[in-house]
Design a protein around this nucleic acid. Sequence first.
DNA 1: CGTCCAGGTCTAC
DNA 2: GGTAGACCTGGACGC
Length: 307
Amino acid sequence: MRFELALRGPTGEPVDLWRTLVSHGFAELPPMRLDPATRSLALTLRVPGAAPRRVRIGPGRPGRALVEVLGPGRAGPRVRPAIEEGARRVLGLDQDLSGFYATAATDPDLAWATAGAGRMLASPTVFEDVVKTICTTNCSWSLTTTMVSALVAALGEPPAGSLDRLENAFPTPAAMAARPEAFYRTVVRAGYRAPYLRAVARAVADGAVDLEAWAAASREELPDEELERRLLALPGVGPYAAAHILLTLGRGSRLVLDSWTRPTYARLTGQRRPPSDAAIERRFRRYGDRAGLAFWLVCTRDWVQDP
DNA sequence: CGTCCAGGTCTAC
DNA sequence: GGTAGACCTGGACGC
């Protein structure tokens, strides 16, 4: 089964597919896999009442993304809506960036972004983004890959027709909550993060926190400040992690200030002294509740050649 | 071998 | 409310 999605936002804004796929590093973490040659992304989406399916999202006809369901067997009637909803969420197609683009167009450092940048690749679930983000804290990217790969391979659910455990659908909160802390230390290699991962999984599995409802809520129902407060209440989630998760939720108000963005931004500004966090906040304040998005785009501009 | 540090966070002052 | 110190892991690097 295959179908196309219009690469347009709610007000007709253009969406740059490739820049969305490589908007941050998670496209390289299992079960996602990036294929630069075809500028496409493979991922695994769950289908209610059926096995997960492996899916590829890549370029379609001009202005469209092609979504292909891989693997054997015909895709039944349950599949198409689940896949379409998942693909739209992963690409952030329902986010309205028109207000952000209006400001960006007046900023020489960000006018380029109005061509379709600004959507952060999201995981199929908020839970997956939270777990992966915790796995990026205070460690090398290679260790992040180790931890996420182990989770997916050991606890994930295989998609139809795949024997590659790194293609497993990301583990459910229940699957993760069922494992003891020792599993997270010895198998996942999560170290001191082990109790955090288990506690987050447990809270979600128990229904104590409803991460997916946070993604569905509008900014009016659930303002960024309140959402940030709730994220910070999760074990293992601090200012960096909360800002990153907010970005993946299309809530770009908070700046992701970490050991990568700080020196990157300092290099781009070319100042003798690296700018303070407060100075960075000031420079992006004009973007209001998209300040964090603007900062991230400035830092990652050269990840893709400008069109 | 030891030290440092990666897309930090938590606890205890 | 602000700030040390501790914290798993595993590469990179210096000795």
